[in-house]
Amino acid sequence: MPEAAVQPLLALTALGGATPRKAVHGVLTLEENPGLALASLALRRGTSRPTPFGIPLPDAGGWTGRDGVSIFWTAPDQWLVAAEARADSDFAATVAAEAPGCSVTEQTDGFAAFEITASTGEAPILSLMAKLVNLDPRRYGPGTATRTGLEHMSVFVIRPAPGRLSVLGMRSAAGSLWHALETAVARIAP
């Protein structure tokens, strides 16, 4: 076997770069998050709700996070579990061990994750949301996550904190999603 075969393969980010892309427009920062590990967790019939990583599974529309691990509701009896900076691990196996008897599916590379941060609190995030998604910010405030449409793409819109917005979209459409987000961010920025 040739030597080259044992050289590890190098990963690219969803936008096709060796390093994550970042754009700063005024008070808003938009950043690709290639380190986010994702696995879906679905209850099987008749099993009880697990508490993976000690986190109770949130109800419909909810998001809970602590110590770099977060869980949000995606569908009846289904959640996505996310962990920062663990994309290179077999995160699905870790989640499966934390949620015995559940159906767990690796989702890390199913999504491109983009983080938007406002340096001046919630107001710019709300202005941005109004340009991106048809969600009532009074219902989808901090501590919520939901899937919705954004420029004809299905995305998860996550509100980890008042001044933060995470958008997860199909990895294959990362370029289109970045364009949509950056255009809106640049227009919101003063």
């Binding site: 009846p76 939901t146 899937r147």
Partner: peptide
Amino acid sequence: FHEQGDRS
């Protein structure tokens, strides 16, 4: 079908 939602 809540296609761009919870798939219910």
